[in-house]
Amino acid sequence: MSRTTADPLPLRVIEPRAGWAPVDWAELWEFRELLGFLVWRDVKLRYKQTVLGAVWAVLQPAATMLMFTLLFGRWAKMPSDGLPYSVFAFAGLIPWTFFANGLSGAAFSLSGNTHLISKVYFPRLLIALSSLGTGLLDLLVALSVMLAMMVWFGIAPTAHLAALPIFVALTAAMAFGIGSALAAMCALYRDVRYVIPLVVQLWMFASPVIYPLGFVPEGWRWAFYLNPLVGAIDGFRSALLGLPFNWPAIAAAWAVAIAICGAGLSYFRRVERRLADFI
């Protein structure tokens, strides 16, 4: 509106692209408002379509926690690092739910938004990224329930709590990196969508959600650390409940997460430009 003729107009060049392209973070930043709107849309729709709204954010992990407490805590007598099993399990379920929902949300984000992708340009990563938004909100709601539980069981938070955002970021990076790679595959191959729920389910049992890290035999632990969710979930629980940090697991988790995230995003970028021709 206020542009004068003296302003040089931005020049955009469109040319064929080939090969691997790095993630264009500057462009993502440029579109941050759209990201906000997409998250806002998802949150808004969640509250419009459901009667219980935010309660689902609590109910989903809480119900799982109750079930696991009965199944693994009472019946199977699963160790829980000397804490009440329900608190122990819930502290693991919060990051796990965030990861699982974020991963499937991102994976299905492209195929669920084909009407946008075939009609408007924006960095396609945005749509995968935005699907983490509601999960983050759910995580905050679940955390407040967790704090209430800690008060109930008389567990005081420690200075470890300050490290919590690190593990949330780690989990988010994992969900985003793997999720966007899966999203690209999902757009190309219909099979992938059936594999995802299965993999997610198995992955939970391969991660210390319902059992402590100490439950894994010493000799196998190094292999276990290669699963970056081990560091993320164990670290999240330690930060929340003031348990000692497992540094090798955390370091391994970050290393693997960064590698996976880099590979996942690169693959997405590679597929991205052909996307509109496929879907």
């Binding site: 107009l9 020049l11 469109i14 040319e15 064929p16 692209r17 408007v120 430009r273």
Partner: peptide
Amino acid sequence: SRITDPTRGRIELRGR
């Protein structure tokens, strides 16, 4: 509109 890439050629767009 940048929804899909050209196979060959070049486009210059001056302005928003």
